[in-house]
Amino acid sequence: MNWKRLEVLLPLVGVVVLLAVWSVVTSLRIVDPVLLPSPAATFKALWTGMFHGKLGVDFIKTVERTIYSTIIAAIVAIPFGILLGSSERLYRSVEFLIDFFRSTPASAMFPLFLVLFGVGDRTKIFVAAFGAALVILFNVAYGVMNARKTRILAAKVMGASRLRVLWDVMLLESMPATFVGLRNGVSLALVIVVVAEMFIGSVDGLGQRVFEAQQMFEMPDMYAAIFAAGALGYGLNLLFLTIERRFVHWSGK
């Protein structure tokens, strides 16, 4: 028996245990089956919902909103982060504002954004972008500020202009932190988008799907939507990690 080879299966142990416990609990009717459907019923609902039902459409909608808001956040936050990070004085002068709004729950901004942008998609995307932007901004600015002084000096000694140092050194030095910001940003954007889909007059999206299934007491559908949201969050994180490993190959080395 080759145990080493079996070790790659270790991450599956938790999943198998969870499914086993879940199956036992439902088959012994320890929990009311209306509240907790069996794994089979749940995954059947997930499968049919994703490929033949409305869940697939909602999934795509949530992906779109999360990606749009992250892109908007990145476009706004990365240049500002570099600008603020390149001058410590500038950053210190707005640090309180950034920290304050970074600490403000973005969900508290819903009513304000509703007034500003109405009940459409724009509100959901902008609130999520707002939350994500501050996280990205903060990370980019710190990435630039913590750029290795020696590396900057090395470029200067070779005759690099300020702009070239910013472009060739500080920008690349900040990349690992930028990606930390992007990963945190996309996670936060997803949270905000799902919450926004639940509560502000939505007709689609995973949040709306979870909420509606719960209202209709379609428990397998609700669990299916929750799993879809979980898979989305995990997938987005994995996507950004993969991009990071590819483009920021020196990170952590």
Binding site: T150, R151, L172, K253
Partner: peptide, 12 residues
Amino acid sequence: VFQNYREAVFPW
């Protein structure tokens, strides 16, 4: 040439 080569070369 810097003493601390790790921080003087460009890892990217």
